[in-house]
């Protein structure tokens, strides 16, 4: 195994050529996106540099409280991102459900994954905890986002069907069964599709990273398989929790639909 080629700063600067290519394209075509492209490039660079230094510090000074603080920060950020995305469209109760189901779903899967599957020790080892938590929380956030979108759309667009079911004596649970099942299906499909294409259509980021850093492909693959299953579990658990708790927020205690 040969080690990784360390990228020097001039080499990284060469990669910025791609940004100039994109800038050239949008300018030539009069697409007004220069600002966003520059901003996102600069932000990405600064955020990653900062993260790099933070990670160096954390890896050198492992401490359970730091690990806990990081996972809380990640959860908070992920939940905040979902809230931001659906600004003004979520009831207070639904927000509470989102926060609860995302935290419970991801934390259960994360700890099972780290302690039972990878068996890290100590339990707060940041070298494993941080990147794996990032992947699990990030993917679950995407899943829950998709789920919320399709749940709220379903409840608005099929409001008359849900009402009709209630009129015909359905409980809110039965009346929303189809919406909930379709939503769950739609929310886990991206994960399932990416599993289908994995290794053939594309090489996943984590695996690529490990291989680049000189780790044997077999080890990298073993990790990738395990993390994919962990992600599938966490996405499913977070989304189903969100749905089974969330549908109720569209009804009041008299089993009537609340006006949004």
């Amino acid at each position: 195994m040969k080690g990784i080629i360390d990228l020097t700063i001039p080499q990284i600067l060469l990669a910025y050529v791609f940004v100039f290519v994109v800038l050239f394209i949008v300018r030539a075509r009069g697409i007004k996106r220069e600002r966003e492209i520059l901003l996102s490039s600069v932000r990405m660079t600064l955020q990653l540099i900062l993260t790099g230094y933070v990670l160096i510090y954390i890896f050198e000074n492992p401490h359970p409280l730091i690990t806990i603080a990081i996972i809380l920060l990640m959860e908070g950020f992920a939940i905040g991102t979902v809230f931001q995305k659906f600004k003004g469209k979520l009831s207070r109760k639904l927000k509470r459900v989102i926060a609860l189901s995302m935290s419970a779903g991801t934390l259960c899967c994360l700890f099972y994954f780290l302690l039972a599957v990878v068996q890290i020790s100590p339990w707060y080892d940041p070298q494993y905890f941080v990147p794996i938590a990032g992947m699990i929380v990030g993917n679950s956030m995407t899943g829950v986002s998709l789920g919320i979108k399709s749940l709220t759309e379903g409840m608005t667009m099929q409001k008359n069907l849900v009402e009709e079911a209630l009129v015909l004596g359905a409980t809110p649970k039965t009346a929303t069964r189809d919406i909930i099942n379709n939503t769950f299906d739609g929310a886990i499909m991206p994960t399932i599709n990416s599993m289908l294409g994995m290794g053939i259509v594309f090489l996943p980021g984590m695996m690529t990273g490990q291989i680049l850093s000189g780790i044997a492909p077999t080890t990298a693959i073993a990790y990738q398989i395990a993390i994919m299953l962990g992600i599938l579990g966490s996405v499913s658990l977070s989304v189903i929790l969100m749905l089974v708790l969330g549908y109720r927020t569209f009804f009041n205690e008299q089993d009537q639909m609340v006006d949004s």
């Binding site: 008359n160 069907l161 009402e163 009709e164 009129v167 015909l168 004596g169 409980t171 009537q256």
Partner: peptide, 23 residues
């Protein structure tokens, strides 16, 4: 009525709505 469970009540008081939805 406030004390009667809604779902149970709707089963004994059936309603045809003005523009019923088809499943």
């Amino acid at each position: 009525l406030a004390e009667i469970p809604s779902v149970e009540h709707r089963r004994s008081v059936a309603m045809l709505t003005q523009s019923p939805a088809m499943f």
